[in-house]
């Protein structure tokens, strides 16, 4: 069996043992459900059979919840010293990081699976654009993967979970909306640059129903960079 998979299974198990998983699932479904069905510009007011509202709510809920998932991943192992046990076994740093990445992504995946009833309900009500909805889910998964890799990186450079959480949010906030704000207030190549860097723009373009190679490359690069930097951070042991 692949060592990453062994680690991922253990981490996923520990999410459920430590109640983190349940709290996350309940809070995620609660928030996104509340904004989708009850509050403000919800589905019934829009009178369109789509999940746009849900995707908007999930976009923000996941942004805050993912750092809470990733913060302990490496910081705690470093603090308690269990990372030493892990890395002196027949496992490479990369396999450890990939295992933890997979575990977080699986938990987000499980959370998204629980929102399938939303999809089925709305599909009953009206004529739904199935393609756009599937793209929306893909967009959420890609965004989550990007934030997980950023969160793992934040967790890999500190022993303190709170620092890891805040750092992940701090880095995330640039991608989530600061780059977007900057791009609209600037013109020329600077505006172009910030618009390219903005995660929300790429996410929007996917949820509109078009999965472009540019978007895939964008998310892929963030994921790759986050994982590679985390690997470097835990491989350096002086």
């Amino acid at each position: 069996m692949n060592p990453s998979w062994i680690i991922a299974k253990r981490e996923l198990g520990s999410f459920f043992d430590s109640l983190v998983a349940y709290i996350l699932l309940i809070a995620f479904l609660g928030f996104s459900g509340f904004f989708t069905w009850f509050e403000g510009n919800d589905i019934f007011i829009r009178k369109e059979a789509d999940l746009r509202v849900f995707f908007g709510a999930a976009f923000w809920t996941l942004f805050f919840f993912i750092p809470a998932l990733t913060m302990r991943q490496l910081a705690e192992e470093k603090k308690t010293g269990t990372i030493e046990l892990l890395l002196t076994k027949a496992v490479t740093s990369r396999q450890v990081i990939l295992g933890k990445f997979l575990a977080c992504l699986m938990l987000v995946g499980i959370a998204l699976l629980f929102t399938l009833p939303y999809y089925m309900t709305v599909a009953q009500i009206g004529n739904m654009d199935h393609g756009a909805t599937i793209c929306g889910y893909i967009g959420l998964l890609l965004m989550s993967a990007a934030y997980i890799s950023i969160g793992l990186f934040a967790s890999s450079i500190t022993n303190n979970q709170i620092v890891a959480f805040l750092l992940a949010l701090f880095i995330g906030i640039f991608f989530h909306f600061l780059f977007d704000v900057l791009s609209s207030s600037m013109t020329g190549w600077m505006g172009e640059l910030f618009s390219t860097l903005s995660l929300s723009r790429h996410y929007d373009s996917i949820t509109r129903g078009v999965v472009d190679t540019k978007d895939l490359i964008y998310f892929g690069s963030i994921i790759f960079l986050g994982i590679a930097l985390s690997e470097i951070a835990i491989s350096k042991r002086n």
Partner: peptide, 17 residues
């Protein structure tokens, strides 16, 4: 690494397992 069995100094373990 898989030829070595190692018990580190402060015996770190996953306490929740």
């Amino acid at each position: 690494n898989n030829h070595i069995g190692y018990l580190p100094e402060h015996n770190p373990l996953y306490l929740e397992m």
